[in-house]
Design a protein around this nucleic acid. Structure first.
Lengths: 234, 234
DNA sequence: CAAATACTACGGCCGCGGCCGAAGCACCGG
DNA sequence: CCGGTGCTTCGGCCGCGGCCGTAGTATTTG
């Protein structure tokens, strides 16, 4: 069982502050250039190169070169889930919660942001709560399930979950709770979370903000989330 | 968001080979003494003390002193889940699979062992497969669900899942797929996995082997798993 | 072709942290 | 009370690895 060395290597890669910052910045699922990652990590480009090379060699990241840029992104969803689980353990440590008011940029992050491939922040939690309250979904710490009424409901509001159902449309386990730093409550990840996020962008319910994981809720999205989903946002 | 430093600290703690070995040894959920952990990690007791102290301070472990021994175990299930997720990423690296035949001790490990609080190895996978094949459970990468017939079935074979059901006995999400090193297939973790393991020990279907995570299947257990569950072990 | 940009390769500095030996407590047994 | 065992603390050694400066290689731009 030489697995131990590989385990330690992966964990050690995530265990350096600079690399952790890079991985964290990539948690929205997008690909960032080497210099952008160097900046968020607070190191020089040549240092970043070393880190990125090691993480790529270990299979944490994958690279896509485009012109004179090299875009890096998380190699697999498993990496994002690993980071979530580490975050969950780390947040339990929580030495002291500084109650200082955060800046406006952080406020936007808390309202709505992407978390790898799904929605997080108050919007993510509100949507999860609304689906559960409406009997469209159930969630436990072990996983989440979409009910039959949930399938119909999602179809009605324009989120097509049919491709996710592989057994004659019966209700299936297709979401997964994910809890990260700002809200301490679970929100919807997994297959449904990804599809919900995708459709929200496609239907112009939300829009990316430049240079941030935060997303802006459009007026149309605000109406949909509130009236159709019944989510308590804002 | 000072979370980054805490994230890196937790990951770095898991990223040292000696500490990784200790954590790995604790994955069966039992508590081990400091000297046992020193031995499995291949370091002297005084080095182990340092590691254990740091991991305890960070909330990864908790200590229970008993006489002149100090027993350490994983602080929370979240720590075990974190390790699972790191293992999943690490095993994807997989530099070269040495096809050498493993020793008899490893053979026992592959047959059946505990994985924190549930069963793994061929037994764990076989039980998961049998429950799915019998229509008693469904599993996706996002989570697992016990069906209505599954609740009745488990009750019939002596695994009481009633305490796990909080909504008038309806079928609920109460298992979680977990995949680790030996079998590359998911097995049943989560609330059901823990209960199934607990009952298997209580009913004397399996027994712990001294000084190993491997468990022995008793003749009675063999019969039950094969005839009642329909599991292909063997 | 030259200049600018993005990234990479190399070399050397330096500090953090893992490791152990020696010695000090804590607890149990006779 | 004394010896033995388990664990911890302390001090010092040392090597790994993060960091940057300098310099070199791709690729776009003028």
């Amino acid at each position: 069982m030489a697995t131990n060395a590989m385990f330690a290597e992966v964990a050690a890669l995530a265990g350096d502050p600079a690399r952790a910052g890079m991985l964290h910045a990539l948690m929205d699922g997008r690909a960032l250039s080497a210099s952008e990652l160097a900046r968020v990590a607070g190191v020089t480009p040549q240092t970043a190169t070393g880190h990125l090379g090691r993480m790529t060699a270990a299979g944490l990241l994958c690279v896509e070169k485009q012109g004179r840029h090299r875009y890096h992104r998380l190699a697999t969803p498993a990496v994002a889930q690993m980071m979530e689980s580490i975050m969950r353990v780390a947040s339990a440590l929580e030495p002291e919660r500084p109650k200082v008011t955060v800046g406006p940029r952080d406020a936007a992050m808390r309202t709505a942001r992407t978390c790898y491939d799904h929605l997080a922040g108050r919007l993510g939690v509100a949507l999860a709560d609304a689906l559960v309250a409406g009997g469209h979904a159930e969630m436990t710490s072990d996983g989440g399930m979409v009910t039959e009424t949930g399938v119909a409901f999602l179809d009605r509001v324009g989120v097509d979950v049919a491709p996710l159902l592989d057994r004659r449309g019966k209700k299936r386990v297709l979401c997964r709770p994910c809890l990260d730093w700002s809200e301490r409550r679970p929100h919807i990840a997994g297959a449904l979370g990804a599809e919900l996020c995708r459709q929200s962008f496609a239907n112009n319910w939300i829009r990316r903000t430049e240079g941030s994981r935060a997303v802006a809720i459009t007026p149309k999205g605000f109406r949909i989330f509130r009236e159709a989903f019944g989510a308590q946002i804002g």
